[in-house]
Design a protein around this nucleic acid. Structure first.
Lengths: 146, 146
DNA sequence: TATTGTTATACTCTATAACTATA
DNA sequence: TATAGTTATAGAGTATAACAATA
């Protein structure tokens, strides 16, 4: 038995199909909360109970630091997060979710973590096989970094 | 042997890790061509040699039809596509890639189709296993649609 | 009457550059 | 001097509503 085509290429192509569905879902979810997709992503990037400098959020969001000012302004006006002073460096502002922010984040994160029908409908054995190969894939990345 | 956690949920979480890397790659590629991510996505959505109504592109892009006017304006000004009259319905405008558009699209599509190191670094057996499970997953979708 | 694409409007995201206040 | 965050600016994406041409 042989492959008519590169299996890695086909696998990547198929994953892209699933990715498109996720994009739509994220847009719908953001709209439900009255947030833009980027605002929802920002909320999701903050860990409840932890503080993150604005510069770190800019890296996570893959955008310039100047954009974060506006994004954070709007989320702060909505009462979902707050700016706090950093103890050791008065230039730095630390971001932290408010109680309302934590609630929204937990709910949204939970809903986005639910696998789509394409994955949920697989047999348990196929789900485990998929998980195992993906663990391998991500492990490759960590090996390379070291 | 048992699972400490839902395998579908963990698989979905791991796929999300790979998606994040793809987002960065798409942004970098668009910037190389001097296009916005959305403009590159629009170019990639048009099949060389085929025509697509603007309304269809709006559906593919997951945005309102009014946005497509501006996106297409900018791509047309760059000489990457053109508007054509539809024979049967004079309200409709058909979009078609120019020669330059086809060249750019083919090159960008080819580069985006290259699997990331996480997938390329898997053993051939793992790549096939991943492909087979993803074929199953997408087949689920088609079964449901019928 | 309904539909396709456009325009007008208002808001958000985006990068660049200049600025403030710290370090 | 260098860095964290802001502001100013200009361009692009976004939805809504109103519109023209056509069906």
């Amino acid at each position: 038995m042989y492959d008519s085509k590169d299996p890695a290429g086909e696998a990547w192509e198929l994953m892209f199909e699933l990715f498109k569905g996720m994009k739509r879902e994220r847009m719908n979810l953001a709209q439900e909360y009255g947030l833009s997709p980027m605002q929802l992503f920002a909320i999701g990037s903050l860990e409840p109970g932890e503080e993150m400098p604005m510069s770190s959020l800019a890296e996570t969001l893959l955008c310039d630091a100047s954009n974060v000012t506006g994004i954070v302004d709007r989320l702060e006006a909505r009462g979902l997060l707050e700016r706090r002073a950093a103890a050791h460096d008065r230039r730095v502002k630390l971001l932290a979710l408010t109680e309302a922010g934590v609630r929204l984040r937990d709910e949204a994160t939970h809903r986005l973590a639910i696998p789509p029908p394409e994955i949920a409908g697989l047999s348990r054995a196929d789900q485990r096989a998929l998980r195992d190969v993906l663990r391998q894939a991500i492990a490759q990345r960590e090996m390379k970094a070291a």
